[in-house]
Simulated scan of single mutants.
Amino acid sequence: MTPTIEASRHASARVLPPLQIGPMTVDTPVVLAPMAGVTNRAFRTLCREAGASGGEHPGLYVAEMVTSRALVERNAEALRIVTFGADETPRSAQVYGVDPATVGAAVRIIASEDRADHVDLNFGCPVPKVTRKGGGGALPWKRQLFTDIVRAAVDAAAPYGVPVTIKMREGIDDDHLTYLEAGTIAEGLGVAAVALHARTVAQHYSGEARWPSIARLKEAVTSVPVLGNGDIWSADDALRMVAETGADGVVVGRGCQGRPWLFADLAAAFHGQTVRVQPTLREVADTIYRHGELMIEYYDGDEHKGVRDLRKHMAWYLKGYAVGGEARHALALVSTLAELRELLDALGDAPYPGKDAEGQRGRAGTPKTPHLPYGWLDSRDLDPAWEEKLREAELSVSGG
């Protein structure tokens, strides 16, 4: 897509220095958050291309979360998730697990087989199917289990020079906050960075992210970068977050859904430029079509599977644009590339709709009572009887 831009290209002083993640230097301190069903190789390609003006390594673009058990068992879909394009560098994978030995083995597979240059550990997923078994955002409550998992991952990756980072939430709810303790534990164990989604599991994706928590984490974790996540819908939001919290970089999730060009805005903003992408409807349509082509390539030429997987992105891409309900409905049911081209061509063109195309997108909803194992909150220690049950949390390939 050739971007339509506004304002000036005049560059001022760089807003933040490059992000140092272990041995890796990331020129633009921006991370694409791993999102299940979204951040596959096709979407990462669009985001990386958009952010390419940000230097040789313009950000980290993290693959979908994959469970450690699935990797150890050589599950085909798990291996697909951690398969990167030839031009992807650095390659970032996110691993989820609840058993230290299995997490260590999975990280060792990634590192020893040169499948990725960076591994992130998921301690923030709020999805009930994960938290009800003690995983994701629920896990740091069990401090020794958290410690053992992080240590296993760091130790497995260290011989290969692969940095390990963690991404977490504030805690389970306001009465069970864990982020400061977890951050300092992880720092002491040798992680290369700590990222915080400034919400609790109970908040899910509702309300506003509580950026002051990122500032508090930055005060507690002093020897490695601290990254902030939550409610970054624009480049200006990212600049405001680092100004208010002192974060060393930002993690962007829902804000880029249907807007891969947000990474062009972020690259410009962090390099002191005011350029912003404002695509016309035709430019959005061209991006959707390219996304479709990349999806088919990702699924080894399976056109039906690739185009079908694209459907979820349609509402995000068209947010704010004057596209009628009938056309939106047809695009949400598209099944072939030829049909996609025909439907997109029929949209015509229209200018960028401004703020209507920006702002919140993706999951939101209301606060939710966390789904936890029975008695999970009774103690910070893990009952040995739960150890086998916790391993069941690794049965699916990707947990959301």
Rank of each mutant, 00 (worst) to 15 (best):
Y96F: 13
V130Y: 07
D114G: 10
P128T: 07
V103Y: 01
A111S: 11
A106S: 13
P128H: 14
I109N: 11
F123K: 05
I110C: 00
S112G: 15
Q94Y: 12
R115K: 12
L121K: 05
S112F: 06
V98F: 09
S112H: 09
A105D: 09
I110N: 12
V119N: 03
N122R: 08
A116D: 14
F123N: 08
F123L: 12
T131G: 04
P100R: 02
S112M: 10
A101R: 03
V98Q: 11
P128F: 05
V119T: 01
A106R: 07
V107H: 03
G104H: 04
Y96H: 15
V119P: 08
P100K: 02
A116R: 12
E113N: 08
G97V: 03
V107E: 02
G97H: 11
G104S: 06
R115P: 01
I109K: 09
F123W: 01
R115G: 00
I110K: 01
A111I: 01
D99H: 00
G104R: 05
H118R: 07
A111K: 04
V107C: 05
P128C: 01
A101V: 05
A111W: 06
L121C: 09
G124V: 06
C125M: 10
V98S: 12
D117L: 11
V130S: 13
A105G: 04
A101F: 00
V130H: 12
T102M: 06
Y96R: 14
D99L: 02
N122K: 06
R132S: 15
H118L: 12
D114L: 09
A116H: 09
D114R: 05
V127F: 14
G124L: 05
A111M: 06
G104N: 07
D117R: 11
A105K: 07
V127S: 15
S112Q: 13
T102A: 01
P100E: 01
P128R: 15
P100Y: 04
E113Y: 09
G124C: 03
R115T: 02
P126D: 15
T102I: 10
E113L: 07
E113R: 14
K129A: 12
D120N: 14
T131C: 15
D120P: 00
V98M: 14
D117F: 11
L121I: 10
N122M: 08
Q94K: 12
L121Y: 10
A111Q: 06
P100S: 02
R132P: 07
D99A: 09
C125D: 08
P128K: 13
A105N: 02
R132I: 04
D120R: 02
